[in-house]
Simulated assay, not measured.
Amino acid sequence: MKIVTEFFACIIFLTMLTVSCQPKERNAQAYMAGKAPVTGVVNFTELASTGGVRVFGRITGLTTGKHGFHVHQYGDIFTKGCDSAGPHFNPTNALHGGPQDSPHHRHAGDLGNVVANDYGIANIDIVDHFLKLRGPDSILGRSIVVHANEDDLGRQDNEESKRTGNSGSRLACGIIAIVP
C-alpha cells in the first residue's frame, strides 16, 4: 500500500514538475560507550540507489586486532550496560555467520569484525545488503556492539560459534537512532 501511495505521489509531483521521485536516503547514528576506554561513533546510511546500508565510523580504545561487530536485538543499553542489548539481531532465526554469507546463513546483525590498528583505532566503512533502516526488520532503535574477541563467523564446531561467533564480552555499545 505504501509503495502504491508513493508511486501515485511521484506521478502527481512529476506532473507538477516540482519534486524528484528518487527515494530519500535515511541516516542513523550510534554513539558507542562501555568499558573504558572504548568509545566510538558509527553512522548508517541507506543507499537508495544501490540497496543496502553503508556502515561507517570509528571506534577507539580497542586492543590491536579483530573484534566482533554486530547489531543486537534491543536498544536497551542502560539496564545492565551493553549486556541489556540482548542477542544478535536475528529476525530469520538463522545460525551465526559472516557478512558475506547468504541471508539464510547469518543473522541480520552479523557484520563480521572491525580491525583495530596499533593505536587501538578501528576505522569502519562497509556496505551490508541485509541491514535495513525501514520496515519491520529495521535496525533503528536497536544497538550496535563491539566485542572483545575476533568473530569466528560461525565456522567453529561448537554451540557458541553458531550463536555469537565466540566474540566474547561486549566492550562498547550504542543505540542506533535516526538522524537528519
Rank of each mutant, 00 (worst) to 15 (best):
N166G: 03
I77M: 04
I77Q: 03
V114W: 01
A172D: 11
K24L: 06
I126Y: 02
V42Y: 07
I3C: 01
A172C: 15
G51L: 06
T39H: 11
G51T: 12
E150H: 02
S49G: 04
N43F: 05
H67C: 04
G165W: 12
K24S: 12
F78M: 04
A172W: 10
G168C: 03
A36D: 13
F78C: 00
G168S: 05
S169F: 05
V115E: 15
N123D: 15
K2L: 03
I3N: 14
E160T: 12
R142I: 07
V145R: 08
R58W: 00
N27W: 07
D83L: 13
K35D: 08
N158L: 03
T50D: 14
V19M: 11
I12P: 01
H88N: 07
H96R: 05
M1R: 06
V114A: 07
H147M: 09
T39C: 02
C82P: 08
K132W: 05
A108I: 13
N158C: 14
H72M: 02
T45P: 01
S167L: 00
D101F: 07
H129P: 01
Y74M: 02
I139G: 10
V38F: 02
L111S: 08
L95M: 09
Q100E: 09
R106D: 04
I12E: 15
S138Y: 06
T15S: 11
G165S: 12
C10P: 02
E160L: 14
V42D: 09
G120S: 08
Y119I: 00
T92A: 11
I12D: 15
M16G: 04
N117C: 03
H147Q: 05
Y119F: 11
N113F: 01
E25C: 13
G112F: 00
H70P: 00
S169D: 10
L140W: 04
N90C: 04
G81C: 05
C173T: 06
V19P: 01
I3R: 13
K132Q: 15
A85G: 15
G65L: 08
G154M: 00
K162F: 02
P136D: 14
I139T: 12
I12L: 14
M16Q: 15
A122V: 04
N166C: 11
G61S: 12
L95Y: 12
I176V: 09
K162Q: 10
K66D: 09
A85N: 09
R58M: 09
R58H: 06
P103S: 13
V114M: 03
N149W: 02
I77L: 03
R170Q: 05
S138I: 05
D118R: 14
S143M: 10
I11Q: 14
S167P: 00
D152Y: 09
R170D: 00
A48I: 08
S102Y: 10
H105M: 11
G65E: 06
R170S: 04
T60E: 15
G135Y: 13
A148N: 03
T50F: 11
